[in-house]
């Protein structure tokens, strides 16, 4: 149990986050991948399901493909998660991924947390942003 807590603290303290209202959010994962993530619709309207795109590269700008990505998130200040269960699909060999079915049901500060899996290795990244 203690080991689990220590691992969790490590994961959540080492991944980078960015706070921005710009259309493209950029963050660095725990293992150093550079992740660009952006909504396919701008501005983001609350209460509307839409899709985002995710672009993942290593530090040498090589696209990273074949990742299995699961997405979670929510509003930490309000102690709730996302109102939908978005899924990452169209995982092509181009390092570009599509996040489908995301929705935000309140204005305020949101987080999207991505878990990236490849060959039994788990990486984590997070972006934070405001929706007005």
């Amino acid at each position: 149990m203690i080991k689990k807590i220590i691992i969790s603290i490590f994961l959540f303290s080492t991944y980078a986050s960015s706070e921005s209202i710009h259309p493209v959010l950029e963050t660095v994962s725990q293992n150093g991948y550079i992740i660009k993530i952006f909504s396919e619709v701008t501005p983001i309207n609350i209460n509307v399901i839409h899709n985002w795109s995710i672009d993942i590269r290593d530090s040498k700008d090589n696209l990273i493909d074949d990742l299995i990505i699961t997405v979670n998130g929510g509003m930490p200040l309000h102690s709730h998660g996302l109102p939908t269960s978005p899924k990452v699909v169209n995982q092509s060999s181009t390092g570009s991924y599509k996040l489908e079915g995301i929705k935000f049901h309140m204005a305020g500060k949101w987080e999207i947390v991505m878990e990236l899996k490849k060959d039994n290795l788990i990486d984590v990244a997070k972006v934070s942003f405001n929706i007005r």
């Binding site: 609350i46 209460n47 309000h78 709730h80 109102p83 049901h105 309140m106 204005a107 305020g108």
Partner: peptide, 16 residues
């Protein structure tokens, strides 16, 4: 209140 009761119909039509 506006967190959940948002938009012109004062609801986010979500579940809390």
């Amino acid at each position: 209140c506006i967190n959940c009761h948002n938009g012109p119909l004062f609801t986010n039509n979500s579940f809390h």
